[in-house]
Amino acid sequence: MTPQRSAYTRRTVLKSTAAATAVTHLTSAPAIADDGGTSEITLSVNGQRHRVAVEPRVTLLDALRERLGLTGTKKGCDRGECGACTVLVDGERIKSCLTLAVMRQGAEITTVEGLARGEELHPVQEAFIRRDAFQCGACTPGQIMSAVACINEGHTGSEAEIREWMSGNLCRCAAYQNIVAAVADAAKETPR
């Protein structure tokens, strides 16, 4: 767990002196190429290191989608309300629209593209297919990342507990009862 995990949301950072605040708390100093405010940073995503030039205001979500081509992570609301952009940062679930890319250097980021091992799906992915835990699929990457974390957190003791701890991820198609079933299934199969 890194100290800046919950201390700075995107909004508080943007409200204050954006770059300065963010940069102060970086675990490793960014190579700031003073090129119109663009910084060259390294993001470690799904075990791969990516050099990417971003302005400090670029969210982790937009860095993933628009710079790294990792479009599995979805943008639903861009303000932390829908959960479609959920990714794991050092194993913990966060909404990637509420954090800046420059704040996540040195962290290990996992997106939905990083769960399967080759052809072999992650147990949560398998369970989502088996239980029909999605329809349109737009919230699904976020649901799956949240489910992986929910299981790791141990919040799968009962159906009610799963419902509560999966309520940060909206599913407008409302596959909720199947999502609950999938999370319960995968929790049984996942050693903690």
Binding site: G72, V112, E113, L121, Q125, I129, F134, T140, P141
Partner: peptide, 9 residues
């Protein structure tokens, strides 16, 4: 289309 939807593909 399940596999495509759960892998982000």
């Amino acid at each position: 289309d399940g596999r495509a939807k759960v892998t982000g593909a």
